[in-house]
Design a binder for these strands. Structure first.
Lengths: 226, 226, 226, 226
DNA sequence: TATGAATGAGGCTTCATTCAT
DNA sequence: AATGAATGAAGCCTCATTCAT
């Protein structure tokens, strides 16, 4: 009897596992398709096919197609949050650049995905369903901002960063990362050969940009050395 | 008879004018709609309505809906090209920052539109029709790069800009502008109060970024002057 | 020029006519299908087919499928309103039974349709779209009630009708008609051979029911004649 | 062994009981849902949920969803048959109106349910499965007719009821009851305040309608007595 | 020449039913 | 025996494009 009970509980646990695995399979299939072809071409049917399941099954896991999409967004932004937390820890150990670095690196690590999330955000921005999930998404993002706030304020007070409102720094950082990601895939530029190196260059800019001494130079292009 | 011919020619010229005016009206209507509401909600019908003409008429001017969209893209990119040319001229008159400045300013001047063009690029990227126009679009963009090439090379040789492949500078510039535009409208950040000032900050970064002395600093935060 | 203008106006009028004719064709096709087969089997596709047009065309005339259905309901109820108005006129000319008679006759004239409208009402009762049209439908129906109010009140005061709240009479009348219609088509009864005669019988009941002297008899079944 | 057998038989009986109880639970759950919300919104899933069992289990009791629905219809019509039998008994004890009264009262006792059965009949009318059960349903209904036949014939021969084919009386009765039920729930009439009283009025009409002397009055409103 | 009604492919979603566990 | 995840047919609706007037 005890064994039976155990096996029954196991079975349930097993089922849940399978269920969640399939859910992940759907998300992965969707991601793969969304990255590899034009977003509007990705239909629920295709996703189901790629996931190796029936169309109806998708709707056992997600209420609407949009819910699959926000799910991808949330998963991604949460991942960034985790990496950022690591960076903040390191920064507290004495490396002030670690935070922006962590931020850039986590976004540029899988630029395909980052760009996808950008696009999805754009399409879902006024979707009636998933409004709440989108709100959560934004909150995570804003939490990054909050987390960085202290760090940046500190750097400003130490005279390392230009003394402008702290969010200027963060948002600039975000903007550069955003653009860098776009850059990776923008077909106008053809296939950039040395992407990795270029991204390194941009990261370095991101890490130092806003450093004191640069802002005023904007209008003052005399040589920096006296 | 002579008079008649003249008037007939006039009439033709007049007609052409009207025709072109209408074409512009269509493009403008489309732009307005695309900026003010979700892109996928913008239908040919609505565009025609807003332009004050019949739906069928639209197809006298454009073979497909996509052609209206690329037209917007092309118009925009050509506009940038013009402003950039001005910047280059100024740069030759002795202001080496004038080029990047011109670039940033022209993109951030109507960020709505810039963002719209980003989005359109994304949607049209693998449209069968308009493939050639899209190619033209990319060429214009690459011509900016070319145009900037000399300038940047010169700045590098003068020791003002970091000595990395010239396109690194340009692409970084593009990336930051791209991201800055996204920033303006991204709902995750809520309504940014001091957008103008923030954009000024970013422009200043854009203008100076890649300046010699910064790249190495990435890992080396000793004062820049020896 | 005058002639030209005229012909242009004619053309527009002609077009409107054709358009409206097609609209009617859709409604007719829908009606025919709804009457001849199970309601849930009637799809927009079938309606379009029967009307000899494409599926998309239906949506040029009606915003949703439900709008076709309410349209049928409204058309029908308005028709009854017209006939009822005639009956009221006649009643004022001295035939007090003319009103109920008109009501019964108009409902039993095309019992298929009456029954269809009953069914449709049932299905659309909580449809988000067409809520307003349904409200209009109910208003027409209630207007019948109002119109009959005076008549019935008069008959009561003349001692012809039982002295109960006036709407009792009207609603009883409605109920009997409703049931009679159901009767015509209810398959449980098999095919009733002498429907016409039966309906006559029922109408006669409807016309006299509620006449004074009957209500009290409910509990008092002694022969009416002294 | 004997004991064991007994307990085994008991167990089987017990099981059957539980099985039947569950079956009833399904029917009840379905009924409740069908009455309280729009019929097409009621899914097998919801029924199973409300019954507190799994969806699959429902199919151990009923081969198709429709079978649940006819079951409700049959249960209801059988209930009426029982009450009608009582009425006939009473009628034979000397109360000639008892039959129609029993009929009306049993239908108006739970008008929600009566109306539900009307609706179900409508939807299932051409369902391939359940054709035989539907036939049974009709037979029960027609058996009411038969049962009433003698009674009505007797009342006719006694000169109490109008001398028309007996089924006229019965069907009129059915029709009025049918309509009365519709009346109770028809939203066009708003919430009728004094439903109970109104139903009493209608019942009284139902009980006396077709009484001799009324039919001829249809066109002849002179006093009933000679 | 301008028009807008007509078209139909194709997308999303629902739900009765099946079947492996 | 009970379960509920999986299935896919079928329905509604949108909209770019065509073409007769």
């Amino acid at each position: 009897m005890v064994l039976e009970k155990a096996s029954s509980a196991d079975r349930i646990r097993q089922k849940k596992k399978v269920f969640l695995a399939r859910e992940q399979k759907i998300v992965d299939a969707a991601m793969e398709l969304l990255i590899s072809e034009n977003i509007d071409r990705v239909t629920v049917s295709k996703i189901a096919s790629k996931a190796g399941i029936g169309k109806g099954t998708v709707y056992k896991h997600f209420l609407t197609k949009n819910e699959i999409l926000v799910r991808i967004m949330l998963d991604y932004e949460r991942g960034i949050a985790r990496r950022l937390a690591d960076g903040i820890e390191k920064a507290q150990e004495g490396d002030p650049g670690a935070v922006s670095k962590a931020y850039f690196e986590s976004r540029l690590a899988r630029p395909h995905l980052d760009r996808l999330v950008q696009k999805l955000e754009d399409r879902l921005i006024d979707a009636e369903d998933v409004r709440s999930q989108l709100e959560e998404f934004s909150q995570i993002r804003r939490s990054h901002e909050d987390a960085l706030g202290t760090m940046i304020t500190k750097l400003i007070s130490e005279g390392i960063l230009e003394d402008v409102p702290p969010h200027y720094h963060y948002l600039s950082c975000w903007a550069l990362a955003q653009g860098a990601v776009d850059l990776c895939f923008n077909k106008s530029w053809g296939d950039i050969q040395d992407t990795a190196s270029l991204m390194g260059f941009i990261t370095s800019i991101g890490v130092t940009m806003g450093n004191r001494g640069q802002y005023h130079q904007a209008g003052d292009h005399t040589p920096k050395t006296s």
